[in-house]
Nucleic acid binder design. Sequence first.
RNA 1: GGCGACAUAGCCAAGUGGUAAGGCAGAGGACUGCAAAUCCUUCAUCCCCGGUUCAAAUCCGGGUGUCGCCUCCA
Length: 475
Amino acid sequence: MIKLYNTLTGKKETFKPVKEGKVGLYACGPTVYDYFHIGNARVFITFDVLRRYLAYRGYAVTFVQNYTDIDDKMIKRAAELGITVDELAQRYIKAYEEDAAALGIRLPDQQPRATQHIQQILTVIQQLVERGIAYEVDGDVYYHAQAFPSYGKLSHQPLQELAAGARVEVDPRKRHPMDFALWKKEKPGEPAWESPWGQGRPGWHIECSAMAMHYLGETFDIHAGGQDLIFPHHENEIAQSEGATGNPFARYWMHVGYLNINKEKMSKSLGNVLNVRELCQKADPKAIRFFLLSAHYRSPLNFSPEQLEQAKRALERLNTMLYNIQERLPRLTQGLPDQEEEALLGQLAASKERFVAVMDDDFNTAEAIAVLFELAREVNTYLNRPQGQKENVLRPLLDFYLEVDDIFGFAVDEEINPLEQEIAALIERREAARSRKDWAEADSIRDTLRERGIILEDTPDGVRWRMQETESSSQ
RNA sequence: GGCGACAUAGCCAAGUGGUAAGGCAGAGGACUGCAAAUCCUUCAUCCCCGGUUCAAAUCCGGGUGUCGCCUCCA
């Protein structure tokens, strides 16, 4: 039984999909005017893991994440770069896909672009106009917030409070300060599309309403995004969608907490926006992923190079264990598990159960990771025992970790590269030195190899080597 | 002014009524020629004050502090 915290009700609720066994999930994607940053990455990774987990739990998930490819920021940036809005969009969609892939984020089932859904957008606006919820003023179309009685239900603020707190100058043509644009009249040099109100372009909020309903239906299961989208973006989406159809829009609203940098909000004015493209140059993307999943998704999370380094080391512990298991695989024996092994298999079963229980409980990745570490200790102990390991014990343990990694995606892809001849020769020379107890020579060779990222370990079964993890950020 | 979140060890972070997970770092030990990896031991009365309760980090009230939203933002 999956429980999710629903922003709409402010409570954890038992998750029941509209259609048994199926989940429609919509997440607000990037505005493709620049590289995405580490805060965006937290959101993308969170929902990447959510959709994978739901699939793991047996749901057929349809995951839709849009690209906002037309809005003020797009227009401004395209002008700065001297390219068209569409060229800008293509450039950064490509960049998004590259960076997402680097972070192990799988592509959604649908990635609709606003500019390719103008028709659907116009349909929703028209419905709103017909129902008297939207009104036209001189080529612009506004949503009339007062016409939607439950406006404010997501942000838990009554309309008058929202209006009272407004810190921007109110356009006098609006009937109410909280009214917002559905359609904007064309300005010279800006992209525009035909509409019943003349040439223009969609407002920001309407695209998500139109595309979410187009791909997932008027009522669907989960709508997700960063916390800062609660108001006004998601509030407006609800008003638009429910206003147009009269039916409930998304049933569960999930919002990811902020990611701060060195305890400060990330913002352009502070100059501390950390884009993923740059970060991946100096940090292991898997460690970034691990770091972002090491706290509960709703908690604020502070990014710093030190924190990332801690995450990297923690992850290394898990990966070393996986490496050790794989390395042991060729030497497993068959036979019935002994008492110690029975106990370990019992712990594996308990860990699996616990993993599902904590993930089901509002997606507690932090606690799920703890489960992995607790089991890892037992596995390590088992790997160390002198009487060897059995196939029917070690294999299920490995399978569990691989299964989990199919959800979390932070394990290192093991590639046991064949050693270069030169290095193999060095290892042999060291072995020779060791057998004649020439420790100075042996240690010097070991140091040489370490400088080349190869770590040697002398085990009871002979010498073993492994590659050091990619250097993480230490600036 | 309105709404909301958070405060747990040196650092990060779970835990929402039964006496404090996990990781990083540190200390001691085992193993090793020395290491590495690993294991063992060790390191917190949970911001403060009241209250409810047999029992509170967990619930209630009051403080203090940090932060967010009400404006584009993931």
